[in-house]
Design a binder for these strands. Structure first.
Length: 480
DNA sequence: CGGTTTTGACCCGCGC
DNA sequence: GCGCGGGTCAAAACCG
């Protein structure tokens, strides 16, 4: 929608330039009023205004055509009368046509919007029901004592799950193997539906929503990014409420609370990586209970989607019921161990954190602005060719994905991106104050099996250059 | 003056 | 039960 709006605004600009000579100012004034009333002007209205302008301009050009007659004075008079009559008929017909076209477009837009929200709602419901039925199959009775019940049913407690694959005497030498073990164990657990629920109230149908929220609050999404600034800008407002020295890290950990909404439960921790202090680790927890500005949407959607994915192994399942290992469709996305400062990974599931944590690693060299290679689109391509037909995709509006999903209509016959697409993508990227957020939104969409149109390699590299130029990580940091 | 940051105290869960 | 570590609270300090 946003992209449509931007495109509409661009068309409007062009038409505005064109119409400046024909003197149709009313629509322009209307447009300006619209924009000043609300920063997020209605895209539909923008399109309508654009169409109105187009109509006006067509009328003007028709008038110029008629004025081209250069006959004698009397003949000219007759011609003028006749042409005026013809002109009004033509204009009326044209106006009717444009109006009906306008209405039709409006209806289509409404329909698309409606279907989008309907689908989004449906998916959320399906995901929730999947989680519920799965847990009910595993745990027919409500667990009174999670730890003892887990032992009885050989279902692992969260801590146990987190400790799986971790040797008691782990040391530096075994780190890489340990990573493999973690990964295998997590995948094994998910494949066997043994990833436990974290809240004891789970399974109570009356309390699904609160249970989901409580679960969501436990899940964490960690973002690793190279930055010299004290905090990455994610579009939200935060208030620091504490700072502690964490064990095993000389750098203090700062605790922030979201202050955009009253009583918003979202919190985040910011800490530098002990091994590489240029890496800033930001860990998000919770779900916003208030509307978010566009700049904050990407990060919020990402963390929410990643947390949902983390807590439901179901999103990774294929239609035949088998579990697709994460690395099958995004080999560079999933590996394990967030504790190591490996820069070769993009996203990890932590097996050592006290809470289930998914780590999005943006310190990968292929994400470095200096690199000529941009790995993500290839992952999209791989992902698309592997799992695009399994029917899973995540709800939520992610700007980066909007660009990608609109690509099909903006690419030429060779599958290459048109200038319009690149402009739109560039605009979207530059207007988003947190590019890392958009990037992570894309990552999250991969992890949620989002269907993404195929992307041409040339376009990939072009896009990569565009993105690289704009710095892979957001450098618009908050000064405190 | 109101909002934010700092920082020591406190709480709580977990392992021994 | 005790100690440890992570997380939070809240009073004081700071800042625009």
């Amino acid at each position: 929608m946003e992209l449509v709006g931007k495109e509409a605004r661009r068309v409007y600009k062009e038409m505005d330039f064109f119409s400046s000579s024909s003197g149709s100012d009313s629509s322009r004034i209307e447009m300006k009023r619209e924009s000043s009333e609300d920063g997020q002007s209605n895209e539909l209205d923008v399109i309508n205004i654009g169409l109105n302008l187009l109509t006006t301009n067509m009328h003007a050009s028709e008038r110029y055509k008629v004025d081209d007659n250069k006959d004698g004075p009397t003949k000219q008079l007759d011609m003028d009368k006749r042409s005026t009559s013809n002109e009004s008929i033509v204009l009326k017909a044209e106006l009717d046509r444009m109006n009906s076209e306008n209405n039709r477009l409006r209806a289509v837009l409404d329909q698309v919007k409606h279907k989008y929200y309907e689908l989004q709602h449906h998916i959320m419901t399906v995901v929730q029901h999947q989680q519920i039925s799965k847990a009910e199959n595993q745990q027919p009775h409500k667990i009174v004592d999670p730890q003892s019940e887990a032992r009885k049913q050989q279902i692992l407690s969260p801590k146990q799950v987190m400790n799986l694959g971790r040797r008691p005497d782990h040391n530096a030498d075994s780190a890489s193997h340990e990573d493999e073990d973690d990964n295998n164990n997590i995948q094994h657990l998910i494949a066997n539906n043994k990833v436990p629920r974290l809240d004891s109230s789970y399974g109570n149908d009356d309390n699904d929503e609160s249970a989901a929220e409580a679960t969501m609050k436990k899940a964490r999404v960690s973002v690793r990014a190279r930055s010299e600034a004290p905090m990455i800008s994610d579009g939200c407002q935060w208030r620091k409420y504490g700072q502690k020295m964490a064990k095993g890290n000389p750098c203090p950990r700062a605790y922030y609370r979201c202050t955009m909404g009253v009583g918003c439960p979202v919190r985040k921790q910011v800490q530098r990586c002990a091994e590489d202090r240029s890496i800033l680790v930001t860990t998000y927890e919770g779900k916003h209970n208030h509307p978010l500005p566009p700049a904050a949407m990407a990060m919020a959607s990402t963390t929410s989607a990643a947390a949902t994915m983390l807590l439901s192994g179901s999103s990774m399942s294929s239609p035949n019921g088998q579990i697709t290992p994460f690395h099958t469709f995004a080999p560079s996305i999933f590996s394990s161990s967030s504790s190591s400062c490996s820069s070769s990974q993009m996203a990890t599931l932590s097996a050592s954190a006290p809470f289930p944590t998914i780590t999005l690693d943006l310190t990968n060299p292929s994400f470095n602005g200096k690199s000529s290679q941009f790995k993500l689109p290839q992952d999209f391509q791989l992902f698309q060719s592997t799992v695009s037909n399994n029917g899973h995709f995540s709800p939520g509006a992610l700007p980066f994905n909007q660009i990608l999903s609109n690509q099909s209509t903006l690419a030429n016959n060779n599958g290459q991106f048109s200038k319009e697409f690149m402009d739109a993508a560039t605009t979207a990227i530059t207007t988003d104050p947190s590019f890392s957020s958009a990037l992570m939104a894309a990552v999250a969409s991969i992890m949620e099996n989002k269907s993404v149109p195929n992307i041409n390699n040339n376009a990939n590299s072009e896009m990569a250059r565009n993105m690289s130029e704009r710095s892979m990580l957001n450098t618009d940091f908050v000064e405190r």
